[in-house]
Design a protein around this nucleic acid. Structure first.
Length: 513
RNA sequence: GGGCCGGUAGCUCAAUGGUGGAGCACUGCCCUUUUAAGGCAGGGGUUCUGGGUUCGAGUCCCAGCCGGCUCACCA
């Protein structure tokens, strides 16, 4: 790992670079004009026979990274890799000349080269470039990982993603797919009449979600700033201003734990639609996810962590129904009517904990004085969440855990809100937006009270947001969708780090420090 | 933060407490249709770090560093 251990290999390669320069090649030339990408050649000529290629004589100039080298005396082969495609080149002394062949002999795995020649098929039938000119483009001073086991050390894969991408094709595929997914989302939102906006990442108040923020400081203004935990409050200000359908795809930052489902910075799609409510958000979510899955995977069904998941049908359950349905087998659980009275909910935490202790599980840590809503949510997350494998909208969230949602007209203890679960993961969170400034102030005051009791994730009072609501926010539906988790689902990635190019790791200890 | 697991050559991995190895990669030589090319000959190690036990530690013990999984928190 240390540079001293690699110095032999690096020194050898430096000397080869000197030899290449001595042959008259630039060490780091400016450019190389290709006639084709490797992908274009593979796509266009993989069905051509040897005879067709000979008859047509297709001249090409291509470039790529050397991934294999097989020298044979006065000739030799190599594979170039570029853009996710590989193409073999055949280099003979009598075709490329002394200088070109000297260059070939000085090549190392990982070097970048350009080749000019014509397409042909080898005796074994592989489409190849018969090289007539070889061009040196850049040196790999560091050696590539082993050629068929690739790179499997996850720490190096995350820390040196560039190497991971070079040698593990499925990693490249995952990130290409993620890009197509985001493209499909933008296409969908645009077609729905939404406009894409960007709102502040640095905010004087960190609102819009219950999470601990990162703190930073602006020197010139001598101002404490938070990296945003959500864009929500700004996007709704835009609805007030008359941008009636807005979305943003961007990073949120939450100063919480790291896990296979959590990275401190993660990407969220958030969107708001005036004159809509959470029912419309449910309908839109279904259409969005179906279209995205079709575009990315060509199917509504996919495999995730060994489970077959289908976006054909989306189930709906209220939070209470989910708790009742998924209460652990063998434990005496509540019926729906047992949860009707909010005051009846917290005792079920004790019931659950009794069962948990007797069966060797961790009991829930819910404050005895926690609100009925917090108790219900805790129960839901403990007993139900992991069972929600097929897409399921959970509706009817408790008021106390939903400071920005509109109350249900028929039951003010609950709000018009849903979360979408797939494969046991929370994928989306949406609600009919609370647009009564007086009620919003009371919600903020409740949050403030939680804050003073030590809950660092509770909202601070945002006076300007209340002012914006006071100008009149139309009835509005809003939603956030976790882009990384959606990418996990569509690429069958078990860890969020496998869909984030550079996941956060502790910095590598350096030898000097 | 807790629990469990891991860290040996550039990479992938071996090695009862008893002289640290293999394959690939690398170096030299041979080879003008190979593809895990082949043949011959070589070089390469602070076994993550620091202590301890022992005649002797990659191996056992303790502490630390880094990572993975998992639980907690959260999305």
């Amino acid at each position: 790992m240390s540079t001293s251990e690699q110095s032999d290999l690096v020194t050898q390669r430096r000397k080869k670079l000197e030899s290449i320069v001595a042959l008259g090649f630039a060490a780091y030339p400016e450019r190389y004009d290709c006639t084709h990408s490797l992908r274009q050649i593979v796509d266009a000529y993989s069905s051509h026979t040897a005879e067709q290629l000979t008859a047509e004589r297709v001249n090409v100039r291509v470039a790529g990274r050397v991934m294999t080298i097989r020298p044979h005396g006065k000739a030799g082969f190599a594979h170039l890799q570029s853009g996710g495609a590989r193409l073999q080149i055949y280099v003979r002394l009598d075709a490329v000349g002394e200088r070109g062949f000297e260059l070939y002999k000085l090549l190392d795995l990982g070097d970048l080269v350009g080749v000019e020649g014509y397409l042909f098929r080898t005796r074994t039938g592989e489409l190849s470039v018969h090289a007539e000119r070889l061009m040196f483009l850049a040196k790999a001073l560091l050696p590539l990982p082993e050629k068929w086991h690739g790179l499997s050390d996850v720490e190096i894969r995350y820390r040196q993603r560039y190497v991971d991408l070079m040698v593990n094709p499925e990693v490249r595929d995952t990130f290409v797919k993620r890009s197509r997914m985001v493209r499909a989302i933008r296409d969908f939102m645009d077609a729905e009449g939404y406009i894409e906006v960007e709102t502040p990442m640095m905010q004087p108040l960190a609102g819009g979600a219950m999470a601990r923020p990162f703190v930073t400081h602006h020197n010139a203004l001598d101002l404490k700033l938070y990296l945003r935990v959500a864009p929500e409050l700004y996007l709704k200000r835009l609805i007030v201003g008359g941008l009636e359908r807005v979305y943003e795809i961007n990073r949120n930052f939450r100063n919480e734990g790291i896990s296979t489902q959590h990275n401190p910075e993660f990407t969220m799609l958030e969107f708001y639609q005036a004159y809509a409510d959470y029912h419309e958000m449910i309908a839109l979510t279904e259409r969005l996810l179906k279209q995205v899955a079709e575009t990315v995977n060509g199917s509504l069904g996919f495999e995730f962590a060994g489970q077959r998941i289908s976006l054909e049908r989306f189930e709906r359950l209220t939070m209470k129904e989910a708790v009742v349905r998924h209460w652990p087998e063998g434990a005496a659980g509540p019926k729906l009517e047992d949860l009707a009275d909010p005051k009846a909910i917290p005792p079920w935490v004790d019931t659950y904990n009794g069962w948990a202790r007797s069966s060797g599980r961790e009991p829930l840590e819910v404050d005895r004085k926690a609100s009925p809503g917090a108790a219900l949510q805790a129960l839901f997350e403990e007993v139900a969440e992991r069972h929600l494998v097929q897409p399921t909208f959970i509706t009817d969230f408790p008021l106390e855990v939903s400071p920005l949602s509109k109350q249900r007209p028929d039951d003010p203890n609950y709000v018009e809100r849903f979360e979408l679960y797939i494969a046991g993961m929370e994928i989306a969170n949406a609600f009919s937006e609370l647009n009564d400034p007086e009620e919003q102030r009371r919600r903020f005051q409740y949050q403030q009270m939680l804050r003073e009791k030590g809950d660092l994730t509770a909202h601070a009072i945002d006076e300007d947001y209340i002012r914006a609501l006071s100008y009149g926010l139309p009835p509005t539906g809003g939603e956030g969708i976790g882009i990384d988790r959606l990418a996990m689902l569509l690429t069958d990635s078990k860890s969020i780090r496998d869909v984030i190019l550079f996941p956060l790791l502790r910095p590598q200890p350096t030898e000097s420090s």
